[in-house]
Amino acid sequence: MTRRSAGRAALRLLAWLPVYGLLAGSAAVVMFPLYMTVVDSLQPIAKFLTFPPDFWPHTPVWSNYRAAMTSIPMPRYMANSLIMATVITVGEVVTAALAAYAFAFMRFPFRTPLFFLFLSTMMVPWEISIIPNFQTIQRLNWLDTYQGLTVPFLATAFGTFLLRQHFMSLPRELKDAADIDGYGDLRFLLSVVVPLSRAALATLAVFAFLQAWNQYLWPLLVTNDPNMRTVQIGIASLQSEEVQRTNVVLAGTIVALLPMLVLVIGFQRFLVRGLTAGALKG
């Protein structure tokens, strides 16, 4: 009997073999560019002057990584990116939660027109604001500062909309009960609405963080001081600074990628779960 069930298990596994084949094949294709980057980041420079390319680093040159770390102040760039992305994320979540609460739970004159005014900001393409915003930051003497990097992005119509939809799905009775208990709006928001909306807030936060971390044009425009550069600008700068040492550029790229990769691998289940909890419905 045990032998028969073991046989059945083996048979089932055999049936799954094509699926595993597909999974492995797809994984290989998805990972291939990164794999080649790691391989090439360990090659001596002379390898880049030969064809065909090598698929394995036969004599790994670990000093490429040291060269990348000394060529640009990578830890500093990482810290800048982290500060920038964190401030933007916190700012977006706070401003969006406040505004969404007002639209979902409060009564005040011009509520609907105001909501449409919020939504209308999504129709203003980001391109149109680059030049005037740059001039504003310049006039405030905010070039090369964290406020120059972050303040223009602290409010989000998209996030407000997302959270309002979620808040509206919460039972109205909660609000009535809170009113009877004499909760103020802020207390109700913080002690009832926020705990019930963790998933939606997390989704917004992840989305905001990724977008902020990946910002490129804005940091390129508002930072001149190398101490204020973000990782993204750092890689591009490394790319042009070490144009003759491709291996070093790739090593720097891997170093810049690692923290985010660890974050994604560590939070992979959480990322999906945060979205599963109904954040996108409504």
């Binding site: 706070v94 003497n141 090369d144 406020q147 972050t150």
Partner: peptide, 23 residues
């Protein structure tokens, strides 16, 4: 309320940290 105020303070501090020079 206090928590929010603290958050705002942190935010303000983080922002101010970057504005060293100016003259």
């Amino acid at each position: 309320m206090r928590r929010l105020a603290a958050l705002c303070a942190v935010l303000a501090l983080t922002l101010a940290a970057g504005s060293g020079c100016g003259s």
